[in-house]
Design a binder for these strands. Structure first.
Length: 949
RNA sequence: GCCCGGUUGGUGGAACUGGUCAGACACGCGAGUCUCAAACACUCGUGCCCUUUGGGCAUGUGGGUUCGAAUCCCACACCGGGCACCA
């Protein structure tokens, strides 16, 4: 930094340069920290403050908090943080109590993988990353209430993550009340006999293990042995939401296998209905709502029981969305994992078994066993590459179609999934494409029960049409349209007790345990019977123990015959523990799984409200004040939540679920966490690749005549993500050095609408730098450093421009249209630049308008203009409506839509008068050339359109 | 395959509920001022085409509605995202 001053600095010692910007920015950042400028008062408690501020309307403005990755930030990361900061600053200046802060989401795979790579303990590396990121963010001048920041890895924080887990563990979903209730209330119902214990025995007759099993079927957090997504390459199980469509892990892209393992789940399916219905009350992008609706996948249909032929007590229950096609059900299919298979398989192939049905096996049992084995070892990846070719095998069993009475063969096939519906289907090849294919391969009968259009043949028909071939002695659907036929069949089935109308969801329960070190430990211990016990609140937080070996146990990514090993289980001193849980000291075994990385982010918005409370997760007062329901926000929630769209069905669904449980149990007043959601676009960057396809450093690529060269060789250019691996990362730090944080903030906001992705262009940053330089020059003499504004009143035109800008910028900011807000500020600034001298009113207006966008220079100029204190809490200017209407408006006169003349008219001119003036205009008369007039359209005061005869 | 978005100058993008010759604002580019020079800064110009005064053509393509369409409707092309044997 000891370079000789440049000519510009010699020529103009007080020019707004990067060096001056750096000085101004550092000074004001220190000022804000020292003065707690961004502290938002709570209505009560430790963070209570100025009552006058508390009395203002509140705004809770949030970003999706970051992972403190080791790579640090590139310019793409802060886009959303800057946007919320501008929005928050605008609202501070318009009389709101604004809560805006940022924490760190620091548990989970990325942090752990980074720690493993660098050979440091995740706590050490994570804390270092947080410090680094904090420094990078501080430079941007974000107005965060730092008192409210935290990281999810702090025991004081995850104590409450564990506490919420226990709330969920200790509750059940009452479908009658449509809400979660304490499990103790369920126990009381069983004890008193008000609720019948399934199986007919009394509660008092059940032993501890039986009681635990029974309650486990109700708990909202429960352990089960269901098939889960096992990823040997990562060494952990994963939630459905973390597995891609082609059956690979979202992180790392390893194969995922189905494996039966005892794991913790969250009964999110209990909330499927409410999670769909409550979307209507939220101000979210339609695309995200749609994604959630699709993910939850509500479908209406019926459950139908099929009697298994020869097994009086056995029935196969299927779910179908097309009960109207029941007469066309010519065979059935069970998923390979279906429990019933073993019970219905006969010893020998029955009469009439076709060769294609047996796969060459001697007995049904052999055929089924072989098929199941093959299906199990297949990953979804393999299923995918096999395409949709139907495979399967006959079980040897038949079922009875309840309406036709016909014997229909029962198959096992992997195109039926255990996880959806009942894991069994009635196959209706006439109306279902997949069943048609299967029926074709296995030579099964096809009966159409909906009349297809003329000429339709050779494939299934699933469109509208009248029912055909659908009648028996008691039921006749023929001629009915689909909806009526459905209703009729359902009524028929319900009357006979062999089926019912029902709703099914695609959503599965949320797999909640991971075989990781770097996560929240479960506050659960097991007794000698293997019964899970919740730790009492007094034992929270259950701290993550220090271990020498925190690396996950991973396996050959393709080896499905492996099983997970939890790092915590390596520490037997920690695992085996003596505790007194109320009935004397006993030895327990700790749960050694940890929670998934989503856990900490499921509720963090609540903790911002009351971050140091060690009595409660949040005080009721603070929660009601910042999150509670209000006009237009019937379910409460954060006023603005900005983040990437990639969390549509992960974080955003999980967080909604936790909110609803906490709401049901009376811990919070908001049933939704985020009232308004906004997805910012991505900042993309050009990726340059050489002839071998390898990315070359983008900063060293030269452009000549529309082509790109690196070290003399031609390279290709594509738009991609910004990042280290593509050698095109630009850091906020380098832009701050080159131009200053205010310029960076302006550039990021000016690039385009917030929700649109756009390419980064370092060369273009200078445009916003020039804006700030011109603004500076409009107030300060570059040579003397003296303020040059004059107290004289501005002229009429300048006043109009000022008030128009005030009006427009305010509206743009309120609607997150920062790019056009900046255009309007620029326009005004350019106009002011041309004035011989700058009136104080206009200069102050400019400073106030730009203050949310470029807070440091605004503070500096505000101070220079003679104001005490910070511009952060100054009033955003209000536009005077008198200056918003022009004295005269240009009115265009069109003939058949083509402009022929312009008139200067008063804005208040009436339609009649304007028409008169327009028709009298000589240019118009000339253009009409004596032709008659058919019609005149007048839109005073701007337009007259004449349609000649 | 299904469901969502989107397509405007060399570039990023403006344009209120269909209404001033579409292109605000910025980058880039061109010319100029300053400078020994370069950079910075400043000033002017810049949709495309035609030889100008002037005119013609222009919002992915083709059609339609309308006095009037970037904006509404239909079809197609291309780009991006989501889901994908969910019964």
């Amino acid at each position: 930094m000891s370079e000789t001053p440049t000519a510009a600095e010699v020529a103009a010692p007080h020019r707004y340069t990067a060096a001056l910007a750096a000085d101004i920015e550092a000074r004001w950042q220190d000022f804000w920290d020292a003065n707690g400028t961004y502290a938002a008062p709570n209505p009560s408690g430790e963070l209570a403050g100025d009552e006058a501020v508390v009395a203002r309307p509140k705004k809770f403005i949030m970003d999706m908090f970051p992972y403190p990755s080791g790579a640090g930030l590139h310019v793409g990361h802060p886009l959303g943080y800057i946007a919320t900061d501008v929005y928050a600053r605008y609202h501070r200046m318009t009389g709101h109590n604004v809560l805006h802060t940022l924490g760190f989401d620091a548990f989970g795979l990325p942090a752990e993988q980074y720690a493993v790579q660098t050979g440091t303990h995740p706590r050490v590396s994570t804390e270092a990353n947080i410090e680094n990121m904090k420094a990078q963010l501080r430079r941007l001048g974000l107005g965060h209430d730092k008192r409210r920041s935290f990281a999810t890895i702090e025991p004081e924080y995850y104590k409450w993550t564990q506490w919420i887990f226990l709330q969920i563990f200790n509750s059940w979903y009452d479908p009658e009340a449509k809400k979660a209730r304490p499990i103790a209330e369920l126990v009381a119902e069983f004890e008193s006999g008000r609720r019948e214990v399934p199986g007919g025995r009394a509660w008092s007759e059940l032993n501890a293990v039986e009681r635990d099993e029974l309650l486990g079927a109700y708990r909202l957090a429960y352990a089960s042995d269901a098939p889960v997504n096992w990823c040997p390459g990562l060494g952990t199980v994963l939630a459905n939401e973390e597995v891609t469509a082609d059956g690979r892990s979202e992180r790392g892209n390893f194969p995922v296998f189905k494996s039966k393992l005892r794991q913790w789940n969250m009964r999110i399916t209990a909330y499927a209905d409410r999670l769909i219905d409550d979307l209507d009350a939220l101000d979210w992008p339609e695309a995200i709502k749609l994604q959630q609706r699709n993910w939850i996948g509500r479908s209406e249909g019926a459950r139908v029981d099929f009697q298994v032929a020869g097994h009086e007590a056995r029935k196969i229950t299927v779910f179908t969305t097309r009960p109207d096609t029941l007469f066309g059900a010519t065979y059935m299919v069970l998923a390979p994992e279906h429990d019933l298979i073993d019970e219905i398989v006969p010893a020998e192939w029955p009469e009439g078994t076709k060769d294609v049905w047996t796969a060459g096996a001697g007995t049904p049992a052999e055929a089924v066993a072989a098929y199941r084995k093959q299906a199990q070892s297949k990953t979804d990846v393999e299923r995918q590459t096999e395409g949709k070719d139907k495979t399967g095998v006959f079980t040897g069993a038949y079922a009875l179609n309840p309406v036709t009475g016909e014997r229909v063969p029962v198959f096992v096939a992997d195109y039926v999934l255990m996880g959806y519906g009942t894991g069994a289907i009635m196959a209706v090849p006439g109306q279902d494409e997949r069943d048609w294919e299967f029926a074709s391969v296995f030579e099964l009968p096809i009966v159409r029960t909906v009349q297809p259009p003329e000429g339709w043949e050779g494939e299934a028909y699933n469109g509208q049409g009248p029912a055909i071939n659908s009648a028996n002695a008691e039921l006749d659907l023929n001629g009915m349209q689909i909806d009526e036929a459905k209703r009729t069949v359902i009524a028929h089935l319900e009357a006979r007790g062999i089926g019912e109308g029902t709703v099914n969801f695609r959503l599965r329960d949320w797999l909640f345990s991971r075989q990781r070190y770097w996560g929240e430990p479960f506050p659960i211990v097991y007794d000698e019977n293997g019964i899970a016990h919740a730790l009492p609140e007094s034992m929270l937080p259950l701290e993550l123990p220090e271990v020498d070996d925190y690396t996950p146990r991973t396996f050959d990514a393709d080896d499905a015959d492996t099983s997970p090993e939890t790092p915590l289980s390596r520490n037997q001193d920690w695992v085996n523990v003596e505790l007194d849980l109320g009935d004397g000291p006993k030895t327990y075994r700790r749960e050694t799984n940890t929670m998934p990385n989503w856990a900490g982010s499921c509720w963090y918005e609540l903790r911002y409200l009351d971050p140091r409370n060690d009595e409660q997760l949040v005080s009721a007062d603070a929660e009601r004040y910042w999150m509670g329901p209000r006009e237009g926000q019937p379910l409460g929630g954060v006023d603005l939540y900005v983040g990437g769209a990639e969390h549509a069905v992960l974080h955003l669904l999980y967080a909604r679920f936790w909110s609803k449980v906490l709401f049901d149990l009376g811990h919070i007043s908001s049933a939704e966490p985020f009232h308004k959601l906004y997805n910012q676009g991505m900042i993309q960057a050009y990726v340059y690749r050489d002839a071998r396809g390898i990315a070359v450093p983008a900063a060293e690529v030269e452009e000549r005549g529309g082509a790109f060269y690196y070290e003399g060789g031609k390279v290709s250019r594509l738009l991609g993500k910004m990042g280290k691996s593509l050698k095109n990362a630009v850091t906020p730090d380098e832009i701050c050095v080159e131009y200053g944080a205010d310029t960076l903030r302006l550039y990021e906001m000016a690039m385009g609408p917030l929700d649109v992705s756009r390419p980064w262009d370092t060369r273009a940053v200078v445009g916003q730098y020039r804006l700030l330089q011109r603004l500076w020059r409009n107030v300060v003499d570059e040579n003397t450093g003296e303020v040059t504004v004059v107290d004289a009143a501005p002229d009429e035109a300048t006043l109009r421009a000022l008030h128009k800008a005030i009006d427009g910028v305010g509206q743009d900011m309120a609607n997150l249209r920062f790019n056009t807000a900046i255009a309007k500020v620029t326009e005004l600034n350019n106009l002011v630049t041309k004035l011989p001298e700058v009136p104080r009113v206009v200069a102050e207006g400019l400073v106030l308008l730009i203050a949310p966008l470029a807070p440091h220079i605004a503070e500096e100029l505000w101070r220079k203009l003679g104001h005490e204190g910070s511009v952060v809490h100054a009033d955003f200017p209000a536009a005077d409506p008198a200056y918003l209407v022009d004295e005269a408006v240009t009115c265009v006169v069109q003939i058949k839509g083509k402009v022929k003349a312009r008139l200067e008219v008063a804005p208040s001119i009436s339609d009649e008068e304007l028409e008169k003036v327009a028709l009298a205009d000589p240019a118009v008369v000339a253009a009409l050339g004596g032709a008659g007039i058919r019609k005149v359209i007048v839109r005073a005061p701007k337009l007259v359109n004449i349609v000649p005869a």
